[in-house]
């Protein structure tokens, strides 16, 4: 009988007791919700992205389920960086006894603004800052996502890195680019300590009876099961190109999905839409399923299988 498998991982100097990270945008809007996600089994939690100013987000409908997953366009609802610092500080206070790391997430309209927001957020001393250069739902306000171009992605990364000092940063990439490996290489060269891959995939759901898109924003980001094969390919491409930890995110609903993400080369695994599909016990269920798979296959540690499916 093998001993209980070890699910702990490291992202740089950060130790996570399991690889599951609450993805940004889900339940990350208050200290109590982040605490709840942490207590429900997450290895780390990410706050919802915040920008330079408060934003109300898009009018309803902002989310709909379709056959293959979910589609959302919340529109980066956030209280602005200064208010977010208070939220993050309170979250850190609540999480202190649990030892569960808190990731902040930021967005902005220019590389300079990214630096500014990062500098403000660093005051809250999050364990990591995720740089959201890939939100698909605010094109009108923030131009084409920086994730679409390696030069702009690198500029943003450098600006954030300079602003935050020793706080590690993860850059969150978009799936809809011709060569995600090149973008990954550019942000790592510019100082990214980790990569989160991927953000949601732009999509549209049309209601034929209404003769119009369901979401008020017309387009949104696809998440859930449909995103998983896209995310797995992106993670595998990135893992082939760079050597930093990857937080593999997209369509992870079960423990098997999480194992597949590790097999593609991810170090940690983002979990978001699973809350809808599996309920509030999502993290615990995924962990149990991962452990069961590892015991069945005599796997002691996730490091033993990381990238194994895509190595040649």
């Amino acid at each position: 009988m093998s001993k209980d498998p070890d699910l702990s991982i490291n992202i740089g100097k950060l130790k996570l007791h399991n690889p599951l990270v609450l993805a940004s945008g889900v339940l990350g809007t208050s200290a109590s919700l982040l605490y709840r996600a942490a207590r429900s089994g997450a290895g780390a939690v990410t706050a919802k992205s915040c920008g330079p100013e408060a934003r109300a987000g898009h009018p309803n409908p902002v989310m709909v389920e379709w056959e293959g997953g979910l589609l959302n366009a919340i529109g980066l609802t956030n209280p602005g960086a200064k208010e977010e610092v208070a939220l993050l500080k309170e979250t850190k206070r609540q999480l202190a006894a649990t030892g569960i790391p808190l990731f902040a997430s930021i967005f902005a309209g220019t590389p300079e603004e990214f630096g500014l927001v990062a500098g403000i957020i660093a005051e809250a001393d999050p364990d990591l800052i995720e740089v959201n250069i890939s939100c698909p739902n605010v094109r009108g306000d923030f131009g084409t996502p920086f994730a679409a171009d390696e030069h702009s992605a690198a500029l943003v990364t450098r600006a954030v890195k300079e602003a935050v000092g020793i706080t590690p940063i993860a850059v969150k990439l978009a799936p809809n680019v011709p060569n995600i490996g090149r973008i990954a290489a550019a942000v790592v060269n510019a100082g990214a300590d980790a990569i989160t891959a991927i953000n949601t995939m732009p999509g549209m759901v049309i209601d034929a009876e209404a003769c119009q898109p369901v979401l008020t924003n017309r387009t949104g980001g696809i998440s859930g099961p449909a995103l998983k094969p896209i995310a797995l390919r992106c993670v595998a491409e990135i893992a082939k190109t760079v050597d930093v930890p990857i937080i593999g995110t997209g369509g992870v609903i079960t423990g098997m999905d999480a194992i597949e993400m590790i097999l593609a080369g991810a170090k940690a695994v983002g979990v978001g839409s699973a809350y809808w599909y599996r309920g509030p016990e999502a993290f615990r269920l995924i962990i149990e399923e991962m452990k069961a798979f590892m015991i069945d296959h005599d796997i002691q540690s996730l490091e033993d299988i990381r990238g194994k499916a895509v190595r040649r």
Partner: peptide
């Protein structure tokens, strides 16, 4: 209520 599906966090009722 915004997403109505337990994901966006808008409808938290505080203690």
């Amino acid at each position: 209520m915004r997403c109505g599906m337990g994901l966006c966090g808008s409808c938290e009722v505080p203690q």
